[in-house]
């Protein structure tokens, strides 16, 4: 009984994980590549969903709606970037401000409704949860293509001159500026790119679920971090290449949703999910710090013994 229902739920969990994985790649870009803690994500994910749903309801093609969602996400990133680089507000706070503002903006986009439905019967949606286990209209091929194309494009981009200068900005701003790199512009651009991806993920998610919700992005940043960390912990040694590292993030997101599904099947109260997620992420973020402390103590002891 447990296994059949889990098996039934698995395709949905994997598809959802892969879509959230695109969002997690956005988080990976800001946290790991640019070294900026960006909390815009919770807002821009819902913005992507809201823009996509409202445009499709207005008669726009789902493809164009995805593009518009991507652009809307980039605008959100632009705002955070300008608050940070032009107004001198710390990156974390800039993201929180944009995220808060986006809640109102998202409600405006959704015509003051907290939830807007998008029926797959009425609109030619690209992917839908309904067909996740059927051969016809199965969403998996398109999701896989999206993931691979995004990873491919990002891999190419971060190998270009501009992409290299962004990586340098993330790893050492002093060095970057001394080499003539406009670090502020790069940070703004990185935030735009990341939030564009997050909004795209939100847009795909809204089509997949058949609705957009003003709260759909709540806790997205933590889920993104969870995916990044799970990917790193599992594949750190194997995946050295940048493209593979991004793939690890996607796998991390998928695993997160599978674990979530299992925990739900075991009868955990859904209301406790966020608490669980936060705890898991906190522990994994703390592990490198604890490790370094233990190492320092150990080397200290060895030095004592030598003396």
């Amino acid at each position: 009984m447990f296994f059949t229902s889990l098996l039934n739920a698995l395709p949905g969990a994997i598809a959802q994980g892969a879509i959230w994985g695109i969002m997690a790649i956005g988080v990976y870009l800001t946290f790991r590549v640019l070294n900026v803690s960006d909390l815009t994500v919770d807002g821009s994910l819902a913005t992507g969903g809201a823009v996509c749903v409202m445009l499709i309801r207005g008669g726009l093609s789902p493809w164009l709606a995805l593009l518009c969602a991507f652009i809307a996400g980039m605008v959100a990133g632009l705002v955070t970037g300008l608050l940070h680089t032009r107004c001198g507000i710390p990156a974390i706070l800039s993201g929180i401000l944009t995220q808060l503002a986006l809640y109102s903006v998202n409600l405006r986009i959704m015509q003051s409704k907290a939830n807007q439905a998008l029926s797959v019967d009425r609109y030619p949606l690209l992917i839908s949860m309904r067909y996740v286990r059927s051969a016809e209209n199965n969403p998996f091929p398109l999701i896989i293509i999206f993931v691979l194309v995004i990873i491919g494009l990002l891999y190419w981009f971060f190998g270009t001159e501009l992409g290299c200068s962004m990586r340098a900005t993330g790893t050492n701003q002093n060095m970057a500026r001394a080499q003539g790199i406009n670090t502020n512009r790069n940070i703004v651009f990185g935030l735009m790119l990341a939030n564009g991806l997050v909004a795209l993920s939100g847009a795909l998610l809204s089509q997949f679920q058949g609705s957009a919700d003003v709260n759909m992005g709540r806790g997205a940043i933590v889920i993104g971090l969870a995916a990044v960390i799970i990917g790193e912990v599992l594949f750190e040694k194997v995946f050295v290449n940048f493209a593979l590292k991004m793939l690890a993030v996607i796998i991390g997101a998928i695993l997160y949703y599978i674990v979530l599904q299992i925990v739900l099947q075991l009868g955990l109260n859904t209301n406790d999910l966020k608490l669980m997620t936060a705890l898991i992420v906190a522990v994994f973020l703390a592990i490198p710090y604890w490790k370094s402390k233990v190492m320092a103590r150990r080397t200290g002891k060895e030095a004592e013994q030598d003396a």
Binding site: F157, T160, E161, R167, T171, N172, Q179, G180, I181
Partner: peptide
């Protein structure tokens, strides 16, 4: 840039003052 390769660091420096494109 510690997380980048030796040759990548040099390539960054070689483009100092130049437009960095695609």
């Amino acid at each position: 840039a510690p997380t980048m390769q030796i040759d990548e660091n040099l390539a960054l420096a070689a483009r100092r003052g130049q437009h960095r494109g695609l």
